[in-house]
Design a binder for these strands. Structure first.
Lengths: 123, 123
DNA sequence: ATCTAATAACCGGATAACCGGATGTTGTCA
DNA sequence: TGACAACATCCGGTTATCCGGTTATTAGAT
């Protein structure tokens, strides 16, 4: 059951939970979007996304200078069911709803200057 | 989402996963049963069970000298759904099936001497 | 080629998780 | 009351995880 414990380990971090949530709400996001929405360092964002990548939760797609990530689990697999349940659990949380709003706002204002933290140049 | 990360943290340990599995297959078990079936130390068994107890996953019931634990989550709650999914995921694993057999055998031979590891006197 | 932005990988350091063995607690029975 | 079994907790040691800061890599633009 080592593999199953590993599965839950990947969900046992608040930052990664938020990333899952963002990716459920928008099918593709680049590292800088996640940095911006969650207000975390580049190092932290990239590290966790790579972690999810190596475990097969997400795929990457390079688009010029940006690296995009999207959820990718086999339909019907345990991971898929787990993700659906996670989405169901999170969707009732005000905190998650606020995060979704933040994501919408972030994407809507791409290209304009973002305040707080070091705003990346890609947006 | 701290609470949700915590939820997954409790599932992110192979020993605890096995405990959940055993408790799903038998509605009440004492510490010594779990020690015996999993082949772990008393310290380890008790520690993890207390951990689950403090998080509300299980309730305890003293029966003389034995402490029995049973799963206890509110029906329909996220924990309940998660547990059901976990059961579904584990049930297809040969490893889990073997564990269930071991549990049956252990309970069936209660009162007789158990080989391997320090056999507890309660059985 | 060179510069720069975006991202990944690396590097200690801090913290938390896990473990076995020892010790404390509780309940039973003689 | 004393001995003992089941269990909980404490102790310290080891390992895993997470983090920010730094350094490498990659791709586009000049």
């Amino acid at each position: 059951m080592k593999k199953e414990a590993q599965l839950f380990k990947s969900l046992a971090d608040e930052t990664r939970l938020k990333m899952f949530w963002l990716l459920m709400n928008r099918d593709e996001l680049c590292v800088c979007d996640i940095m911006g929405v969650l207000g975390i360092t580049q190092s932290k964002a990239s590290r966790h996304l790579r972690y999810l990548f190596h475990l097969g939760w997400v795929t990457d797609r390079r688009e010029g200078v940006w690296m995009n990530y999207r959820l990718s689990v086999a339909p019907g697999s345990p991971e898929d069911k787990q993700l659906k349940l996670l989405g169901e659990i999170l969707s009732s949380l005000p905190e998650a709803q606020a995060l979704r709003d933040r994501l919408e706002h972030w994407l809507a204002t791409k290209g304009q200057s973002h305040d707080g933290a070091a705003a990346c140049q890609c947006c």
